[in-house]
């Protein structure tokens, strides 16, 4: 490894692929999974609801770092299955963790719609399904975008937690360059990469908000 500016940039870009991969995989799977969790957590069947509440409590109540460690080591420690591709297990931990947060955001969105609108739908002769898809859903999507945006930006930075199990993401790559060459500036330089990522995501979110700018 070398510490010239170009070679550090190149190494960090390579590491960004892990960050990017983890980010995209988490969003693709956690957004629908969160919806599933939200639906189950609001089910009319009380025990199921209770179970989902406990699961959400555990996932939101423990550090993501701990969950990553658990997902990578528990298969080997408990079941004797050694983990060969740890990236998959780390991604799984991220998906489950973020799904729990997304589920709560969806729930908040659903509960923020006044009951009167359901009643109005009923009076106007809409079926339950129609009320949800034609009246509730369009407002829901609008309302959850800002909190979802928050989580998305947080996710960009959370990807750095994957380094606890040795995934070669941006921060650990910079540290490795420092450990092998003794140059200390790369660790500060990583900030630029996160800023580029979150800058792009901010623009994308702005665009989504603009697209959803109906009912005005």
């Amino acid at each position: 490894m070398s510490s010239s500016f170009w070679s550090v940039t190149q190494s960090l870009m390579g590491a960004s692929l892990y960050t990017l991969g983890l980010f995209v995989i988490t969003l693709i799977f956690a957004i629908p999974l969160g919806l599933g969790v939200c639906v189950l957590a609001r089910s009319k069947f009380k025990p199921l609801r209770a179970v989902m509440r406990v699961i959400i409590w555990i996932i939101r109540g423990t550090p993501l770092m701990l969950q990553i460690v658990l997902f990578v080591y528990a298969p080997g420690l408990l079941f004797g299955i050694s983990v060969s591709d740890r990236f998959i297990w780390v991604a799984l931990a991220f998906v489950i963790n973020y799904a729990a947060y997304f589920a709560e955001i969806y729930r908040g969105g659903i509960e923020s719609i006044p009951v009167g609108q359901y009643e109005a739908g009923k009076v106007l002769g809409f079926s339950k399904k129609q009320t949800f898809s034609k009246i509730i859903m369009p407002q829901l999507v609008k309302r959850i975008v800002p909190p979802m945006g928050n989580e998305v930006i947080t996710l960009i930075k959370d990807t750095s937690l994957a380094n606890v199990v040795g995934i070669a993401e941006i921060i650990i790559t910079a540290k490795d360059i420092t450990n092998t060459t003794g140059a200390i500036w790369p660790i500060f330089y990583t900030g630029v990469f996160y800023l580029i990522f979150s800058g792009i995501m901010t623009l994308v979110l702005q665009w989504i908000e603009k697209k959803l700018n109906y009912y005005r």
Partner: peptide, 9 residues
């Protein structure tokens, strides 16, 4: 990123 490829460390 595609050009640089995965950083083989």
């Amino acid at each position: 990123f595609a050009f640089v490829g995965c950083g083989n460390t």
